[in-house]
Simulated assay, not measured.
Amino acid sequence: MTDDDHLWFYCISDGSVRQGKEARGVDRMGPYPDRATAARALEIAAERNKAADKSDDDWNN
């Protein structure tokens, strides 16, 4: 059992949420502390991208 076996991951290839590193690394987002957070992986990524884009815009202007 590895340290990541208790953490949660989002699998982008099929949209599933899995505990532990069952999916290939290229298909995995995470780790997340719980199932609910892992289920929001795409939403979290979109929020972070939006914040990074705003930061870039602020820097450039």
Rank of each mutant, 00 (worst) to 15 (best):
D5A: 15
R40L: 09
A36D: 12
R48V: 10
I44K: 04
D34E: 08
A36N: 09
Y32I: 02
D53P: 02
N60A: 14
C11Q: 09
T37K: 08
L42R: 13
M29L: 11
R40I: 01
Q19Y: 00
G25Q: 06
K50D: 14
M29K: 07
N60F: 12
R48T: 10
A38D: 03
C11S: 11
R35C: 10
I44C: 05
R28L: 09
A41L: 02
A39I: 00
Y10A: 05
V17H: 02
D5M: 12
W8E: 02
K50F: 09
G20P: 05
P31M: 04
A38Y: 01
E47V: 02
A45H: 04
G20A: 05
K21N: 05
R18C: 05
Y10M: 02
D34N: 14
P31K: 00
K21S: 05
S16R: 08
E22Y: 03
V17A: 03
S16V: 01
D5R: 09
W59L: 15
K21L: 08
T2L: 13
A41M: 02
R28Q: 06
C11L: 07
Y10L: 02
R24H: 09
I44G: 05
L7D: 08
A23Y: 00
Y32L: 01
V26A: 11
K50P: 00
D14W: 02
S55H: 12
R28G: 01
A46Q: 12
D58V: 12
W59H: 15
R18P: 00
D5Q: 14
R48K: 11
A52F: 08
K54W: 09
P33M: 08
G25N: 09
R18F: 00
Y32E: 03
Q19N: 08
E43F: 03
D34G: 06
V17I: 07
R24S: 11
C11T: 06
D58H: 09
A45F: 02
G15L: 01
D57C: 09
V26N: 07
A41G: 03
E22P: 06
R18W: 01
R28F: 01
Y32V: 02
R35E: 14
E43Y: 04
R18V: 10
D53C: 08
R35I: 06
C11H: 12
A52L: 12
G30E: 04
N60L: 14
F9G: 01
A51S: 13
W8F: 13
F9S: 03
E47A: 10
K50H: 11
S13R: 13
W59A: 15
E22M: 06
A38G: 04
D5W: 08
W8C: 03
D3G: 14
D3S: 15
D34H: 11
D5E: 15
Y32N: 04
F9H: 06
R28N: 01
I12W: 04
G15S: 03
D3C: 09
A51R: 14
N60P: 00
L7Q: 10
E43M: 02
R24K: 12
R24N: 11
G15F: 01
A51T: 07
P31W: 05
R48L: 12
E47N: 10
